[in-house]
């Protein structure tokens, strides 16, 4: 079965999730062709084991993100089997446009895939799981870090194709992020604070711990809605980001159902809360009944001595 993978790229390289797309394609018995929008990351894609061929798709239309224009340029190169893309903002939009162009069904944000094709995915932001079956042709986007990456060591042929399409979106102004901190959706470790932190200024204690272990700092909806200083892009939960890091540390977060929906699939969860009955302890692997004022300094010094050994 032909599988066309729309590579996920950064500004100048292949995003590592692309290897996971290749791994998933092989799982369902596919022979993957990787399309690299803008030609970015073609050499890196060719070195992923199992890739049959790589097509660098070049053109002016890839200079600005316009999902309709990208899809129109990529679609002629898509084969009739399964289209795979990453469940990231750009991948989701482009895959949905390609599906609409081809009149094929699309299933977004799959977390499990079996030959056949059976797709598992979270619904209601993870409060339930659905299993659906679908047959090719179809488009699927896959949640980052939910699938094993294919190994390196491939040596696929790379070709380059020039495409053009009409771009409707023009960037007038780029506004850089206020901080250069790691985003919660990209992090292996997240430490999040809730309204129990008492004051947004106290988030500096979370940042100090985060800096020791290379973590991103997140927040509960209550913290974001209560304090304007905490931006929405830090919010973890049903109306924020759904995350699945290796380690999630919840500090002063009671564990409202919306929050649990966004973080319960984390591999390990540590909760620090002074209320022994807080619902967050229900999903925590390790719960610490303590105020953050008492616990965070100890956590910081422990991590510090651990990392200096």
């Amino acid at each position: 079965m032909d599988v066309t993978i729309i590579a996920e790229t950064t500004a100048d390289d292949l995003h590592p999730v692309t290897s996971q797309l290749v791994g998933a394609a092989i799982t369902i018995g596919g022979t993957p062709t990787v399309l690299c929008p803008g030609g970015i990351g073609a050499a890196a894609a060719a070195s992923i084991s199992g890739v049959a061929k790589v097509i660098g798709v070049e053109g002016d239309c890839f200079e600005t993100f316009d999902s309709g224009a990208w899809a129109a340029a990529l679609n002629p190169l898509v084969s009739d089997g399964v289209v795979l893309a990453a469940s990231a903002p750009s991948g989701r939009e482009v895959a949905a446009q390609i599906a609409a162009m081809r009149g094929i069904p699309i299933i977004q944000d799959a977390t499990g895939l079996e030959g056949g094709i059976t797709v598992t995915r979270g619904i209601y932001s993870g409060k339930a799981v659905e299993t659906v079956s679908v047959s090719a042709p179809c488009a699927l986007t896959l949640r980052p870090n939910a699938f094993d990456a294919a190994a390196d060591g491939g040596n696929a042929d790379v070709s380059t194709v020039s495409q053009s399409s009409d771009v409707g979106v023009a960037v007038r102004e780029a506004i850089a992020k206020v901080s250069e901190r790691l985003d919660v959706s990209e992090a292996d470790i997240i430490i999040s604070g809730g309204r129990g932190m008492g004051d947004p200024a106290n988030f500096t204690h979370l940042y100090e711990v985060a800096d020791f272990i290379g973590a991103a700092v997140g927040a509960s909806r209550a913290a974001v809605d209560t304090w304007g200083e905490i931006p929405h892009n830090m919010q973890v939960g049903q109306t924020g980001k759904t995350v699945n890091p290796n380690l999630y540390i919840a500090v002063g977060i009671s564990g409202a159902i919306q929050h649990l929906a966004g973080m319960r699939s984390s591999k390990f969860i540590v909760a620090i809360n002074k209320d022994p009955d807080a619902p967050i302890f229900g999903v925590a692997d390790y719960g610490i009944v303590s105020t953050w004022e008492a616990a965070l300094p100890v956590l910081k010094s422990e991590l510090s001595s651990l990392l200096s050994n």
């Binding site: 069904p105 299933i107 059976t118 979270g122 619904i123 993870g126 409060k127 339930a128 799981v129 659905e130 299993t131 659906v132 079956s133 679908v134 047959s135 179809c138 319960r264 699939s265 969860i269 540590v270 022994p276 302890f281 999903v283 925590a284 692997d285 390790y286 719960g287 610490i288 009944v289 303590s290 105020t291 008492a294 616990a295 300094p297 100890v298 956590l299 422990e302 991590l303 651990l306």
Partner: peptide, 30 residues
């Protein structure tokens, strides 16, 4: 449509975690 729903299920249940009292337990958790 070639899409058909097989089933809905509750999210996988985690085994109960371990709970510790007080900040003195932080080193053990780390």
């Amino acid at each position: 449509s070639s899409v058909s729903l097989q089933s809905h299920s509750p999210p996988p249940v985690k085994p109960p975690g371990q709970k510790f009292e007080g900040s003195d337990s932080v080193p053990a958790v780390v």
